[in-house]
Design a protein around this nucleic acid. Structure first.
Lengths: 209, 209
DNA sequence: TTAGAATGTGACCATAAAGTCATATGACCA
DNA sequence: TGGTCATATGACTTTATGGTCACATTCTAA
């Protein structure tokens, strides 16, 4: 946890530090991220930085907490009544939400991808016993319900399918971000919709079933 | 390219250096990988290392070349007559091949994942103008053919679908590698088969189409 | 006005990194 | 035996890292 001093900081200065940290961790994995670059970006001396944070892990935890907080806030409305929609309608909302989050917070999305790629790193095992795989767990539950309701084929592998939905959720947003870049360019809702159709019906034609 | 000296090395010593390098790059991303650790593992002095390789990039390139070479050798038979199978039979072979490769070369598989996660790193842009996205391109071609033959729905997004197939190919192998022995007791061929069924038919039940 | 607490600050430390180089060793040929 | 060439070697250089700390400054309250 950041020190009291950090929270007492004038808002603009605290914001500069936070932005610098997010910027650094969006470009570099935990090990390669540099405190020196962060303080240069933020325009604060090194001594000050260590008044605010205990160590590197501490800033990183802070950044991840902000990330989770923002993402949760974004997805919360969709998970309020998860069982009133049918599975694929809810899936659409979740993927749309994920994409919108990525488009409006590209740096946080980049951090998300880095975390997933690096998830076996010691620092995560220590830092994230909470929210890692939260996404996978949500999809697991939803899939179970979907099977009960007969919306999902009963012969799927639950664990694997939950993993795939979670992986693709991030991968899909990453892909869109990389290829399209901005939300205005094209009808991204149609794009999400086509992706959900793939998840529901696969790539195969009628003929090939 | 490694220096002449490296190739003149007695096979066993050269093998030790190669293994040490592969081991290091399977555990650490390019930036975090350490030459010092490599030479300690290989049991050679630092001076010798720099007789063999020009710099860090040079060993890395060497490792990647070995990786691509081995993977190609493994997948070659499946790509010999790509159009004699229907799309999903070929897809099955490719996913099976990918999984078998991962199972018999777990370290190389780990390197593959790291490369994909880190693909925007300067060193890759310089090093891999060849074979990056080779996988995506193959899938792209196969999908086109599949559409022509009416095996694939004509309304899919080609680029995105190729990307998904490529991403899932690696993700699927990673997942199996991580989970095998614990929750997966099923024979791996049946596992691949079920995954291909998902790609073909999706997760949706008949009712929900 | 002044004591004391909270903050700010950058020189400094130990450590590790990639890469160099002068010298030592060994092999091959005359 | 002597000379030349490829190879082996580890001390060394430079640069960066995460983190510390003695001291300076500012703020608060009595």
């Amino acid at each position: 946890m950041p020190r009291e001093t950090f929270y007492n900081l004038p808002e603009v200065k605290r914001g500069k530090v936070e932005s610098a940290a997010i910027d650094e961790f969006s470009q570099y994995a935990y090990d390669s991220a540099s405190i020196n670059r962060i303080i240069d970006m933020a325009g604060i001396p090194k001594g000050s930085f260590y008044q605010y944070f205990e160590d590197k892990k501490d800033v990183y935890r802070y950044v991840i907490d902000r990330l989770v907080e923002k993402k949760m806030a974004h997805l919360k409305p969709m998970l309020e009544n998860p069982l009133q929609d049918n599975f694929f309608d809810l899936l659409f909302k979740l993927y749309r939400g994920g994409l919108e989050f990525a488009l409006s917070n590209p740096q946080l999305q980049m951090i998300t991808s880095k975390i997933l790629a690096d998830r076996k790193h010691p620092v995560f095992l220590e830092l994230m016993h909470d929210h890692i795989n939260a996404s996978e767990q949500v999809f697991h539950i939803l899939l179970e319900k979907g099977i009960e309701r007969g919306e999902i084929r009963a012969d799927i592998d639950l664990e694997l399918s939950a993993h795939i939905l979670s992986t693709l959720n991030t991968a899909f947003a990453d892909y869109y971000l990389e290829k399209k870049g901005s939300i205005i360019e094209e009808d991204y809702l149609a794009y999400v919709s086509r992706h959900i159709t793939f998840l529901k019906q696969g790539m195969g034609s009628e003929k090939s079933r």
